[in-house]
């Protein structure tokens, strides 16, 4: 106790951060449960880990994986392009443009992806032929819906339009998040409305658009597994094809799970760097993914001492 004052008698107390003993207890329990889980899974004969290893790099599985990734990319491109158009229509001062845009979002966001998928796949049942004819000129072309609406096209259209409903809302909120002052400043510098949109508004809107878009893309990657119901040979359908012959159902579903997890993990890393790029005025220069991801893992008590 004799050291609590300096020579002049000013108290020099040390602060002691609050201890959190329960965190140590909770962390121990979590580690214990996790270990049990790993051991349980490793010992469970029904999971057939040997079969999992055998099928992980199976050609049919890898083809399915590639199909899933390509499908995700194609759908996302359609969703983003359509989403931008719908968002811009929605923000138009004219009701003639904004009402249809809101109707689009209402329709495609309000119905389940699986229902839309099956509807598009069965388009021929209610639109047997697609015909373009101009009165007085005649029929320009006419095709049978059955010929055009392949499972792949149905998948891209159905999920693309469904996703576009979400993207339109994400992009709209992103554009609206950019202050009116930015528009005025750009107009005062003589920028044309189109240039204003692409050089000033969109780059700033991206800060708001990127995080939910990343989530949507990850969601979409998993949602594409629905296309297995209309016989598009994606990752899940390929695995189903194999286990319907070999009856190794569980190991193949684990293979599928592992691949989805790997791709989602890679996408999450990409999302981090994209976010950092578009918020570059906010981040400290060169923030590394590892600093953010692992900063809190071993922190059991919060550091409250000032820097």
């Amino acid at each position: 106790m004799e050291n609590t004052s300096d020579k002049l008698g000013v108290p020099q107390f040390k602060t002691v951060p609050l201890r959190h003993p329960f965190r140590y207890v909770a962390a121990t329990i979590v580690v214990l449960l996790f270990t049990l889980l790993v051991f349980g899974a490793a010992r469970n004969q029904a999971l057939q880990w040997a079969a999992v290893g055998r099928y992980l790099f199976n050609d049919q599985v890898l083809d399915g994986l590639l199909q899933t990734i390509l499908l995700t990319i194609a759908i996302m491109i359609l969703a983003v392009v359509a989403g931008i158009v719908i968002a811009l229509m929605n923000l138009s001062p004219s009701n003639l443009l904004s009402l249809p845009a809101r109707g689009f979002v209402w329709l495609f966001r309000g119905t389940p992806a699986l229902v839309q998928l099956i509807l598009w796949y069965n388009l021929a049942l209610f639109v047997p032929e697609m015909t373009l004819s101009i009165p007085g000129v005649g029929t320009l072309f006419s095709v049978s819906s059955n010929d055009v609406m392949t499972p792949l096209l149905a998948a891209i259209l159905a999920l693309g339009l469904h996703e576009a409903g979400y993207m339109a809302e994400i992009i709209r909120s992103g554009i609206q998040s950019v202050g009116k002052g930015q528009t005025e400043a750009a107009l005062c510098l003589g920028m044309k409305p189109s240039k204003l949109m692409w050089r000033i508004i969109m780059p700033q809107a991206m800060r708001v658009i990127i995080p939910p878009t990343g989530n949507e893309t990850i969601n979409l990657l998993k949602t594409t597994s629905l296309v297995s119901t209309i016989a598009v040979d994606d990752l899940l359908y390929s695995a189903q094809g194999i286990y319907s012959r070999t009856f190794e159902t569980v190991p193949l579903l684990i293979v599928v799970t592992i691949w989805y997890l790997i791709v989602v993990s890679i996408m999450s890393v990409g999302q981090f760097y994209l976010e950092r790029h578009f918020a570059r005025d906010q981040y400290a220069p060169r923030t590394k993914l590892s600093t953010v991801a692992f900063a809190n893992i071993f922190r059991l008590r919060r550091e409250v001492v000032a820097k």
Binding site: G179, G181, Q182, E184, A185, A186, P203, Q204, R280, D281
Partner: peptide, 13 residues
Amino acid sequence: IGMVFQNFNLFSH
């Protein structure tokens, strides 16, 4: 015609 605003309105990106 140049303009300078009360809230600066610099392009933040």
